[in-house]
Write a protein that binds this DNA or RNA. Structure first.
Length: 310
RNA sequence: GGAGGGGUACCCAAGCGGCCAAAGGGGGCAGACUGUAAAUCUGUUGGCAGACGCCUUCGCUGGUUCGAAUCCAGCCCUCUCCA
C-alpha cells in the first residue's frame, strides 16, 4: 500500500509549520486538505504558506481555482489521489496537511463519490418547493424512498434532505446505505494530529486574527471584490472573508469585525474538535504555547521513522 | 428641585395576579455531518436528581392575597425632558 503521511488538527494549530519542518528531514511533498486554500487571491484569510515556503517544498492543491470556480470534495478526492500517485511514483512521500476532516476521510477510505453527481436544476427546483410548501413537505418526500435518512435528517437540514432525494433519483438507492459500507483505508496512512488545550488554542486564534488584520486582510478582501467576486460565492463565505465583506458594506465596524471573526474561528475550531473526536486512527500529540517546536518534531520523527521501516 | 420612563436569568429583551424556572434573540456549551464542509443543520442553557420532583431566582425591604416577576408602600439605582 502506498504510504501517506497526514498532518491534521484544528485551525491555527500549527500544521503547516510542522509540515515545513518535516520537509527538511523527509522527502515530502505537501498536499493541502483545505477547502479554502484552493482559491487563488485568498492568502491572508486562509493562512496559506507563503510563496517562498512553497518554493522550498512542493505544495499541491493550493491556488488551483479562481474564487468563483466550482470545487467539491469529489474533485479534491480525485486530484489528491492523482497527486499521491504522482508523488510516490517519484519516490517521495505524500504529506496531506489540512483541517478539513471531511476531505481527509473521503481521501483515505474507499469512499465512492462519483455515482451521483450534483444536479443543480433539481436542487433549484427543490429549494423553490421548500420555499413554497415548506421544508417539511420536502422532508416528507424521503419518508418512503429512504426511511433512514428521513429519520436521521432534521427537516431544516434542507441541503442534506435535498441531496438525499437527489441521490436516490440518480441511483435508485438510499444515500444512507453508503454509511453502512465498512470503512477501509486504501493507503498505509500515518495520521498525526496536533492536540491543543481549548483555551490555549483560542488565545492563539485571537492573536492570529490580529495578525491577519495587520497583514492586510481588509485589502485582500477589497481586491477580491474589485475583481468581481461577490459575497454570495462559497469561497467568499469563508471565515474572514464574509466578516470583512460585512464591514466593507458598512454593516459592522472594524472592532466588531475582529470580534466576530475571532468568535467564528473559535466556533469553527470547536466543530473540528467534534469531527476529529470520532475519527479513528489519529495519533494526537499534545501541543501548545509552551511546547517547543523541536520537542514536537522529535516525537513526530520517532513515529514516522517507525512507520517508514515497518 | 419638577414631570415622565426603566431596573427580569451570562447579555439584550417580552411578560404585568395562578397555565412562569419565566417567550424571543444574542452569547456559551454540546452534537450531527458521504458532492461548494471555513459550509450547513440540531439540541441545550438557574442549582440538585436517572426520574416523580425538590430548592433558589424577576433592584432592595416590607405589605395585600389561598397565590405576586406581575398589585400597594418605602428605599436604592438609572434614563429622558423641564428648571
Amino acid at each position: 500500500m502506498t504510504k501517506v503521511l497526514i498532518v491534521t488538527g484544528p485551525t491555527a494549530s500549527g500544521k503547516s509549520r510542522l509540515a515545513l519542518d518535516l520537509a527538511r528531514i523527509y522527502p515530502i511533498e505537501v498536499i493541502s486538505a483545505d477547502s479554502m486554500q484552493v482559491y487563488r487571491y485568498m492568502d491572508i484569510g486562509t493562512d496559506k504558506a507563503t510563496l517562498e515556503e512553497r518554493k522550498t517544498v512542493p505544495h499541491h492543491l493550493i491556488d488551483i481555482k479562481d474564487p468563483d470556480e466550482a470545487w467539491s470534495v469529489e474533485e479534491f478526492q480525485q486530484r489528491a489521489r492523482v497527486a499521491i500517485n504522482d508523488i510516490s511514483s517519484r519516490n517521495r512521500l505524500p504529506c496531506i496537511v489540512g483541517g478539513t476532516g471531511f476531505y481527509i476521510r473521503a481521501l483515505l477510505y474507499d469512499f465512492p463519490l462519483e455515482d451521483a453527481p450534483p444536479n443543480p436544476e433539481f436542487r433549484h427546483r427543490m429549494k423553490a418547493l421548500a420555499k413554497l410548501k415548506g421544508r417539511i413537505t420536502v422532508h416528507e418526500m424521503l419518508r418512503n424512498i429512504d426511511p433512514e435518512s428521513y429519520q436521521g435528517l432534521h427537516p431544516n437540514d434542507l441541503k442534506r434532505v435535498i441531496r438525499a432525494i437527489e441521490y436516490y433519483q440518480a441511483t435508485n438507492r438510499p444515500i444512507s446505505a453508503r454509511k453502512h459500507q465498512a470503512r477501509c483505508s486504501i493507503y498505509d496512512a500515518m495520521m498525526i494530529g496536533l492536540e491543543w488545550k481549548r483555551q490555549e488554542l483560542y488565545e492563539k486564534i485571537e492573536n492570529r486574527v490580529e495578525e491577519q488584520f495587520q497583514r492586510g486582510l481588509i485589502n485582500e478582501v477589497k481586491n477580491l471584490m474589485k475583481m468581481g467576486y461577490t459575497r454570495d460565492l462559497p469561497s467568499m463565505q469563508g471565515i474572514g472573508y464574509k466578516e470583512v465583506c460585512w464591514m466593507l458594506e458598512g454593516l459592522i465596524t472594524e472592532p466588531e469585525t475582529k470580534e466576530i471573526l475571532k468568535r467564528n474561528t473559535r466556533r469553527f475550531a470547536k466543530r473540528q474538535f467534534t469531527w476529529f473526536a470520532r475519527e479513528e486512527g489519529i495519533i494526537w500529540l499534545p501541543f501548545g504555547k509552551h511546547t517547543s517546536q523541536s520537542k514536537l518534531l522529535n516525537q513526530v520523527q520517532i513515529l514516522i521513522d517507525d512507520w517508514l521501516l515497518a
